[in-house]
Design a binder for these strands. Structure first.
Lengths: 185, 185
DNA sequence: TAAGTCTGTTTAATATATTCAACATTCACA
DNA sequence: TGTGAATGTTGAATATATTAAACAGACTTA
């Protein structure tokens, strides 16, 4: 296994910034001094596991997640979306963002649901996680035994092993951008 | 979130014994004193990440493997996005879709770039893949040595180990939905 | 028995992590 | 302009991790 050097400081800084926290805010949540967070992020101090755990609890993420690394893909760049795909007799259409399925880490779809569009009663489920944002219109999302109607700017995220279903109950077309981890068919 | 305590000492002792090494043997391989291994295993000392790494190198086991716990992700459903996070002096803002970083397979962001917003010259790069769709406005995307201006409905996808930068050069606010795999840093 | 060598543990000295307080900078606001 | 409240950083004091060396027990071997 490729045992690359693990940059504790850089990782902590990125995670903290992604959570929109200042060093002092995180320090307060974690119950440590702000100075030590600065020093750790500069790799001027190698935190004890105990204090690193306290800091991560402030985010909160686990030690396992902190140290987990993803397998490295090859550098690729793609602009624009693939061709339009139509489902449900044209009532649902989407474009896939990025390269074709093989080897991707992400599947991103730009979807359009016509009024009345429905992914169907036989609810989908697959081994991945999935989320999205409603851009325009209203969409009913049913996951497991929960159901919600989302409008523009609202969002969802779920474990796609749960059976799920999407329906446009309104009079207006609904537009959604969604993403999921690569489906393992 | 219920994050079970991680017993560093017990885990180290078990791993060491599974490898059939005495404390002194492991200490010699790791380049540390035998005393500290005894103390760590008794949880009388919380090792620094640096020295823990040295010890694990003697097994050899990575930090990720040491802290890895059985991936038993519970099915989860989340609606709506987290609170608004602001960057670049408020010119760039986003909401994160779904749960907090911990254990997610996906990061989905609903982003807004004010006119003139710029992620900066010191271009970002991290270990993941990333893509998105422009909903409104125009956004210049620079990845490696490629640069493109995307408008509504247009999309991008790239390996985020390539340095990248986003700029809104227009007069209008730009809205984007993006997704990436969980960044390792 | 005693001397040898292995085991894990402990003690006192030292190196380092961590704290507290101050500093320099930036940004919002008067 | 200035003043206050943010930001990240740094220095000196303190707490803790780490070392080197010694200790105690279990097992050979003579």
């Amino acid at each position: 296994m490729n045992r690359a050097e693990f940059d504790v400081g850089a990782r902590l800084r990125i995670l903290r910034e992604m959570h929109g926290l200042s060093q002092r805010e995180l320090a307060k949540r974690a119950g440590v001094s702000n100075a030590i967070i600065s020093l750790i992020e500069q790799n001027r101090s190698s935190p004890s596991v105990g204090s690193l755990k306290k800091v991560l609890d402030g985010l909160p993420i686990s030690l396992a997640e902190f140290f987990a690394v993803d397998p490295a893909p090859r550098p690729r760049v793609f602009f624009n979306a693939d061709e339009l795909v139509e489902l449900a007799g044209g009532r649902i259409s989407y474009r896939q963002v990025g390269p074709d399925l093989a080897g991707r880490a992400l599947q991103i779809l730009h979807e359009h649901y016509a009024p009345g569009a429905d992914t169907g009663e036989a609810m989908l489920h697959h081994e991945s996680e999935e989320g999205g944002v409603v851009i325009r219109g209203r969409l009913e999302i049913t996951v497991g035994d929960q159901s919600r109607v989302l409008g523009p700017g609202e969002a969802y995220y779920f474990d796609s092993r749960l059976p799920h279903r999407f329906r446009n109950l309104g009079e207006e077309e609904c537009e959604v951008v969604s993403a999921c981890t690569p489906p393992s068919f």
